[in-house]
Amino acid sequence: MRIARIFVAGCLLVTSLGAATQALAGDVEIVDAKARSSGDSWTFSVTLKHGDTGWDHYADLWQVYTLDGALLGERVLLHPHENEQPFTRSLSGVQVPDDVTEVIIRARDNVHGVSPQEFRLKLDR
């Protein structure tokens, strides 16, 4: 009976530590973003910071929106970047309407969802 209690206590401790580690990672922070036009499309480079802990909790997406909420493009992040923080990834071929002079960047992680932070970026036209 004593061994069973120790085992249960150990399992609870491991579960609590895992939950605490996920909570410490917090929301994704958008550190910087840049955009450059190339012909009739745009390339966006976005720098994110997040306490990635591995496959259980990592920044997995960033998106580009117009100010009125139309999605222009998104970059799916296919793996954690726990040893590369902050990190920058780019997305090419984004079609931006001619009348759009500013966009909003949003980011997401696979535990907390979309970060409350919105990064506004003026486009050089």
Rank of each mutant, 00 (worst) to 15 (best):
T15M: 14
D40N: 07
S45H: 08
K49T: 12
Q63Y: 05
L17W: 03
G113Q: 12
G69L: 01
W62K: 01
N110R: 03
F7V: 15
D60M: 05
G10L: 13
L91P: 00
I3C: 10
D60A: 05
W62D: 01
D40Y: 02
V46L: 07
R36T: 15
A70Y: 07
V64W: 00
G39A: 06
I30Q: 02
G73C: 07
Q117G: 12
P80W: 00
G113Y: 10
A25H: 04
S16M: 14
V64S: 01
L67I: 14
T101D: 15
F7L: 15
A35S: 01
A33H: 04
K34F: 11
G39N: 09
R75I: 13
R89N: 13
F44G: 03
H112M: 15
D68K: 04
R106F: 09
H112W: 09
G54C: 02
F44L: 12
E74Y: 08
I104S: 10
K122A: 15
G51K: 03
H81A: 00
A33K: 03
K34C: 09
F44H: 03
T15G: 10
C11Y: 04
L71M: 05
R36Y: 12
D60S: 04
L71E: 10
L72R: 00
V103E: 03
Y65C: 07
S38E: 15
L71T: 02
W42M: 08
A35D: 00
F44V: 04
L123M: 10
K34N: 12
A59M: 08
D60H: 01
V28T: 06
D40M: 06
L12W: 03
S90A: 14
V111L: 06
V64Q: 00
I6L: 15
S37A: 08
V103H: 01
N83F: 14
V100W: 08
V100M: 13
